[in-house]
């Protein structure tokens, strides 16, 4: 059974068709890239999957459950974690607090437990703290645990977002341009990080990225969007040769002399 099954997903903003008839089948453990020129509808597709946008048409089945119309927080708790293209951290809270936040959705203690000092809550808080430190260590930010998230460097903020998404214990991780603004060295480290977390956390990954070297080197399978429509899908080598894809990115070759 596939982990995520998307059928005929369409998003219409007034007269604009941002995404048309988007289909996607993600098998458990896959690492798939979603690419396409700017404005192709990639982030819109992410926003529909994570519940930020309600699709105009189509169905989304995650892990056997219909997630269409659910709230972002509900979808997250079902097991879809995400990062953002334009980083959304809690800038005035420490890196550690940012990661600890991601455990809150699964907290069992009710709000009066910390007020009355129940030991059950103290236990949960300790687990939260320990796991958060572990996650920070994973993404290489352990030394910066007490730094305000807003004061971290760009690449560090991106890694913190990944740690935070992992804290929600996702089955499926959606990464929106994780390598944007990173230098080649950071990008290589990120590729390695994605591969190891996929293995260690048993993840399925769907990512959007413009860095072709990154995408081609990392993803097992690609889906290409252009103007909201899916124009190609297949292995990275196939996509590199695909005429439609090349046209979408570079434009049509005009015959000489005209």
């Amino acid at each position: 059974m596939s982990l995520l099954k998307i059928k005929g997903l369409t998003m219409r903003f007034g007269g604009l068709l941002a995404v048309t008839d988007f289909n996607l089948n993600l098998e458990k453990g896959e690492l798939v890239g979603l690419i396409g020129p700017n404005g192709a509808g990639k982030t819109t597709a992410f926003n529909m999957i994570t519940g930020r946008l309600k699709p105009t048409e189509g169905s989304m089945i995650f892990n056997g459950l219909d997630i269409d119309g659910k709230k972002p927080s509900q979808i997250n708790r079902l097991g879809i974690g995400r990062t953002f293209q334009n980083i959304h951290l809690l800038t005035e809270m420490s890196a550690l607090e940012n990661v600890m936040m991601s455990f809150h959705g699964r907290l069992k203690s009710p709000f009066w437990a910390p007020i009355l000092g129940f030991p059950g809550y103290a236990r949960e808080e300790r687990t939260m703290l320990k796991e958060s430190h572990d996650l920070l260590e994973r993404v290489g930010l352990e030394d910066l645990a007490q730094t305000e998230a807003g004061n971290l460097a760009y690449g560090q903020q991106r890694r913190l977002e990944i740690a935070r998404a992992l804290g929600t214990h996702p089955k499926l991780l959606l990464l929106d341009e994780p390598a944007a603004g990173m230098n080649p060295r950071e990008t290589n480290a990120l590729m390695e990080l994605i591969l190891t977390i996929r293995r260690d956390f048993d993840l399925t990954v769907l990512l959007i990225e413009h860095d072709m070297k990154f995408v081609m080197g990392l993803c097992e399978r690609l889906v290409v969007l252009d103007n909201g429509a899916t124009i190609a899908r297949g292995l990275p080598v196939e996509i590199q040769q695909n005429k439609k894809v090349i046209t979408a990115y570079l434009g049509e070759r005009k015959s000489a002399g005209r």
Binding site: G81, F84, M93, M100, H104, P114, R164
Partner: peptide, 21 residues
């Protein structure tokens, strides 16, 4: 407590808070 952190998270970035469950 963790609830207080959640309240502050909503103040700072409701979108991020929602996407963290």
């Amino acid at each position: 407590s963790s609830y207080g952190r959640a309240l502050k998270a909503i103040r700072e970035n409701e979108l991020a808070a929602e996407s963290m469950g």
